[in-house]
Design a protein around this nucleic acid. Sequence first.
RNA 1: GGCACCGUCGCCAAGUGGUAAGGCCCGGGUCUGCAAAAUCCGUAUUCGGCGGUUCGAAUCCGCCCGGUGCCUCCA
Length: 481
Amino acid sequence: MAIQIHDTLAGRKRELVPLVPGRLGLYACGPTVYDLSHLGHARCYVVWDVVVRHLRARGYQVKYVRNFTDVDDKIIKRAGERGEDPVALAARYADAYLEDMDALGNLRPDVAPRVSEHVPQILEMIGTLVERGFAYAPGNGDVYYAVRRFPEYGRLARRNLDDLLAGARVEPGEAKRDPLDFALWKAAKPGEPSWPSPWGPGRPGWHIECSAMTRAHLGAPFDLHTGGKDLIFPHHTNEIAQSVAAAGDGVHAESYCRHWAHNGFIEIDDEKMSKSLGNFFTIRDVLARHDAEALRLFLLGTHYRNDFNFADTLLADAERRLGYLYETLEKADRAAAGGAAGPEEPFAEAARAALDDDFNTPQVLAILAEAFTSANALCDRGGKRTPQERSRLAAFAREARAVGAELGLLARPPSEALLALRDRAASRRGVVAAEVEARIRERAEARKNKDFARSDAIRDELLASGVVLRDGPAGTTWKVE
RNA sequence: GGCACCGUCGCCAAGUGGUAAGGCCCGGGUCUGCAAAAUCCGUAUUCGGCGGUUCGAAUCCGCCCGGUGCCUCCA
């Protein structure tokens, strides 16, 4: 089954065709590590993680590269404000980022290159650009890319040079021939990290690192480059210009990378969430309140290309929904016990087909919803279950987990996940488990004596503190709403 | 101003030419001592508005209204 993906370069959905059949090189633009990661990063990297998981599930041999930009103006600025070494600051936030990605259940990339470790490759590429006349060194220690030398400049962003000119700006001290030219190499200023170069000590400009690192780890052309849609211009636009000039055919964007995909934003109150607007939640802020897998489920509830609003209530809904999924799995596991798992249930392939179609995760969740409803109906049906029913439930549980694995969901043992969700809800509401269980024992006594008034009084009292009781054949269980 | 994107049930959200997925909420049923959970049934003749193309449009085209993003760091 062919994978369809919305390709920014083509401006439409098209088939994802790797250079080498069955293999796929993917470069996800990584974070600039000068602060804690926010929900926008969570969204972005969860999305590309699902892409990697699905492609692998479809048999592609994926090489997943996700970089760290650890040499950058913002890092230097932040380090200066704090009197900290920029290299140390970047390393610290890179570690924090990895912890956040792990917490979200994202797979580690195969390669996680850092700018600071690729300066030789960067210098080599800049040298090539100068040799080929795509870049120039005006003698002030900077090296600039000559935008007008590249005929397709702006194609990815669907902009021409004249459109862009209005917004172009030349900083004091720069020596650009054209205001749209951008720095490949920046002359060192006192106190900044720097490396020796043919043009004097300095450091890489913002865009060249990705060009050098993709070349080092994926070659050219490679198959899929991803990132947030805010990177289309100027970052990816400039990356294409550099790479096509240095390593490609000098003309066509495809000679650098064959497909480009960009994710939409998370918004707060209908405005983009971003560090510069200051309206962001860090991943840690959110995970302090909510289950990480619930956050993941929430993030996958909207198609990756759409923007969507973050709201705590929506995340709380996702957390309840995750509880439902795990409860159903637990029931199915129990009901299926001893049954030989049957053949694949149709919903699994339907879910994969939805992922084939531009990674339509909301569609997958809809397909799962129907499968879970059917499974519940089967579990709760009275009477003795037939071997066929047990085998269907076993197949359901197996396929549900397999589809879940492509989304990075449903990997925990249900009882463990449910307990974790309950504990989290309990601590949010200040509910103490031992106290609840003591009250449940009291109530069980009352119920045994058919003292339903007493029993219901206890239940109402617990309900007032957010505890919901559920009487079942095996006793009473509880949840926190 | 230029270039993109978006506007689908009270809320969230799929669907890009073939007659409106799914989730939450809400109403009713089954189950239950009563509940809760689960499940079943019901809930948009309609997709921002107005025109047009078509046998047929939420889906294509035009105009209008409303919103967002990018054009400067940003996932």
